[in-house]
Measured scan of single mutants.
Amino acid sequence: DEDSERELEKLRKNNASKEEIKEVLKRLGFSEDEAKKLAEKAG
């Protein structure tokens, strides 16, 4: 959803580590696997 998109955008701009991105995604309700895949894509 839009909030998670914004959250990811912010992380990308701040050069967050894949680990940080994954944690945020998991907080947003993604499964471990989904979060890992998305973090890879974002990283």
Rank of each mutant, 00 (worst) to 15 (best):
E32A: 05
K10Q: 12
L8I: 11
E7D: 04
E2M: 14
K10W: 12
R27G: 13
E19D: 10
F30K: 03
K26N: 06
L8S: 01
E2W: 13
V24Q: 07
K10Y: 12
E19V: 04
S4M: 15
L11E: 02
A39I: 12
K37G: 08
V24S: 07
A39D: 01
A42R: 07
E7K: 06
R12Q: 08
G43T: 13
G43N: 10
F30Q: 00
L11D: 02
D3M: 12
S31F: 02
A39E: 03
S4A: 14
E34D: 09
S17N: 05
K41H: 12
E23Q: 06
D1Q: 13
K41V: 14
R27C: 15
E32M: 02
A42D: 11
K18L: 14
A39Q: 01
K22P: 00
E34Q: 08
A35G: 02
L38E: 05
R12T: 07
F30P: 00
V24G: 03
E23A: 08
L25F: 04
E2V: 13
G43H: 12
L8N: 01
K37L: 12
R12E: 06
K18T: 13
S4V: 15
A35V: 07
K41W: 14
A42H: 15
A16F: 07
E40K: 02
K26D: 07
G43W: 15
K37E: 09
A16I: 06
F30M: 07
E34G: 03
E20H: 08
S31W: 01
L25W: 00
K26T: 08
G43I: 11
S31R: 02
D3A: 14
E34R: 02
S31C: 15
S17T: 09
L11M: 04
L38M: 10
E5H: 11
V24A: 14
R27D: 08
L8M: 05
K36S: 14
K26R: 09
K41I: 13
D1A: 11
K13C: 15
G29E: 03
G29I: 00
L38T: 02
E23N: 08
A42E: 11
E23S: 06
I21D: 01
S4F: 15
E7Y: 10
E5R: 13
R6V: 09
K41F: 12
E23L: 06
K26Y: 02
L8H: 02
A16M: 11
L38N: 02
K26Q: 10
R6N: 09
K22V: 15
D33W: 06
L11F: 05
S4N: 10
E20A: 09
K18A: 12
E40H: 05
N14A: 09
L11G: 02
E2Q: 11
E9M: 04
E2F: 14
G29A: 00
K22H: 11
E34C: 13
D33G: 05
A35E: 01
E19N: 05
E7M: 14
K22N: 05
E32D: 10
E2K: 13
L11K: 01
E32N: 03
E2T: 12
A39C: 15
S17H: 03
E7Q: 09
S31G: 06
K37V: 11
E9F: 01
L28H: 03
N15Q: 09
K37W: 08
E19A: 07
L25Q: 00
A39M: 13
L28T: 00
A35H: 01
A35F: 04
N14M: 09
E32L: 02
I21W: 10
A39R: 00
S17R: 05
K13N: 10
E40A: 06
K26S: 05
K13P: 04
E7P: 01
E7S: 06
I21M: 08
D33A: 11
E34V: 08
K18S: 10
L28G: 02
A35D: 01
S4W: 15
L28W: 04
E20I: 07
K41L: 14
L28V: 02
E34A: 08
K41A: 14
R27Y: 08
K36N: 14
D3P: 07
R27H: 08
N15S: 05
L28Q: 04
K36V: 11
A16P: 03
S17E: 04
E32S: 03
L28E: 04
E40S: 07
G29L: 00
S4Y: 15
L11V: 03
S17F: 07
L8A: 04
L25A: 03
L38G: 03
E5P: 04
D3N: 10
K26E: 06
K36L: 14
A42C: 14
L38I: 13
A16H: 06
E34K: 03
S17D: 06
E2L: 13
R12A: 08
D1Y: 12
L8K: 01
A39L: 12
E2C: 14
E32Y: 04
E9A: 09
E9P: 00
G43L: 13
L11W: 02
L8R: 02
E32T: 04
S31Q: 05
E9L: 06
K13H: 09
E9S: 07
S31A: 05
N14H: 07
V24D: 02
G43F: 15
S31T: 11
A42S: 10
E19K: 04
E19F: 04
F30I: 03
D33N: 05
D33E: 14
N15H: 12
R27Q: 12
E23V: 02
E34T: 06
K26H: 06
S4E: 06
E23I: 03
R6H: 09
S31K: 03
E20W: 10
E23T: 03
I21N: 00
L38V: 06
K13I: 06
A16C: 15
D33T: 04
N15L: 06
K41Y: 12
E19T: 05
F30R: 01
G43Y: 15
R12G: 05
K13T: 07
R12P: 02
V24R: 05
A42W: 15
K22M: 15
A39T: 07
E40G: 04
A35Q: 01
N15T: 04
K18I: 15
L11T: 01
S17P: 06
R6P: 04
F30T: 01
R12D: 04
